[in-house]
């Protein structure tokens, strides 16, 4: 009985995605071709990975608003190394990821160690990191040519599937496996579910939260220094702007709880992000005013958050009052 109910819930995000694809498939033109589906996903790959990163914060109960900015700064660092010093790509990539991990650690220091208000700290971080990025690039758009071969790598047999997308899928699979099959993943959920109980039965929740935030930084670093600069081929000041919101929204749309302890990478954050991506590209495809998209998106997200609040209330029930 109970099992069935829950299946409907976790399936509901698939239904929404399917409905969006069908609606725009009928209404738009050439929306439902492999090429355009791939292109949307490929363009949104950084957004998807940042949503996965934000999910790790959400699972332990931290709403991290600095995810996109961490990705941005990692990308800037990697890109500038490529652009200015012509280092080999792996070195630039490693540097970008290292920046991400470091920033995740800084966040954990402020939030976990010094017990500062997580949302405000990460909000401040977001603005500061962006300022750093703009300072480094001097507010100019920088084109990175030496990643072109990587960007254009495709597999013809799969209808022109980009290699970068395959890498994204691999990362997602690994993350979900970590979440379901490792002790670390399980501890994340336990800590997010009830930190006090976790502490009482001998789980070091501060350590787990620190690890979660550093993993978040790592993923943002990958998102910035690979999926952003490689896939886009350039650094712009507005890069990844607003993605913190889209990331968290995508995660919640996919059923990740804002209060911690509940959620998945796949289907969760990934399907939720795909819903947002195809909604935007579908609306653009149908020629709906570009300005309307964020508006519609805001409302959909609001509904998703409300559903999350309802679900949480149902589960927690009387415990909340």
């Amino acid at each position: 009985m109970n099992k069935k109910k829950i299946d409907v819930y976790s399936l509901s995000s698939y239904f929404v995605l399917l409905a969006i694809l069908i609606v725009f498939g009928i209404g738009g033109n050439n929306f439902l071709t492999l090429k355009s589906l791939y292109a949307t996903m490929n363009n949104g790959s950084a957004q998807i990975l940042i949503a996965c990163a934000a999910t790790f914060g959400l699972l332990v109960g931290i709403i991290d608003l600095s995810v996109a900015a961490i990705g941005y700064l990692s990308g800037v660092v990697a890109g500038m190394l490529l652009h200015l010093y012509n280092v080999p790509y792996p070195v630039a990539f490693a540097a970008g990821v290292a920046v991400g991990v470091f920033l995740g650690w800084v966040n954990s220091l402020l939030i976990v160690k010094f017990k500062m208000n997580g949302m405000l700290v990460t909000f401040g971080m977001m603005l500061v990191l962006r300022a750093f990025g703009r300072l480094f690039t001097n507010d100019k758009t920088i084109t990175i040519d030496n990643v072109k071969p990587m960007r254009q790598a495709r597999i013809a047999a799969l209808g022109g599937l980009q290699v970068s997308l395959i890498i994204l899928v691999l990362i997602i699979v690994i993350l979900q496996l970590v979440l379901t099959y490792t002790a670390f993943g399980r501890k994340l959920l336990l800590v997010g579910c009830d930190e006090n109980v976790a502490n009482r039965i001998g789980i070091n929740s501060d350590k787990i939260k620190t690890q979660a935030l550093m993993l978040e930084g790592l993923l943002c670093g990958i998102a910035g220094s690979f999926f952003w600069i490689v896939v886009q081929g350039s650094i712009v000041t507005s890069g990844l702007n607003g993605y913190e919101f889209l990331a968290i929204a995508g995660a919640v749309l996919g059923g990740v709880s804002l209060l911690g302890g509940r959620g998945t990478i796949f289907p969760g954050a990934v399907i939720g992000s795909l819903i947002l991506l195809y909604l935007a590209s579908g609306m653009a495809n149908m020629g709906i005013d570009l300005f309307v998209t964020p508006f519609v998106r805001g409302i959909i997200i609001f509904i998703a958050m409300y559903v999350d609040a309802l679900r949480t209330r149902k589960i927690m029930g009387n415990r909340m009052s």
Binding site: Y181, T182, A183, L190, C193, D194, S257, G261, R319
Partner: peptide, 26 residues
């Protein structure tokens, strides 16, 4: 832990013991 399953609740305090040999996998 309300949102977790029964077996996860029962074995929550000693998760590290449940990794397969020399790996992180539960």
């Amino acid at each position: 832990f309300d949102t977790m399953t029964v077996y996860e609740n029962i074995l929550a305090s000693d998760l590290d013991k449940w990794c397969k040999k020399k790996s992180l996998i539960l």
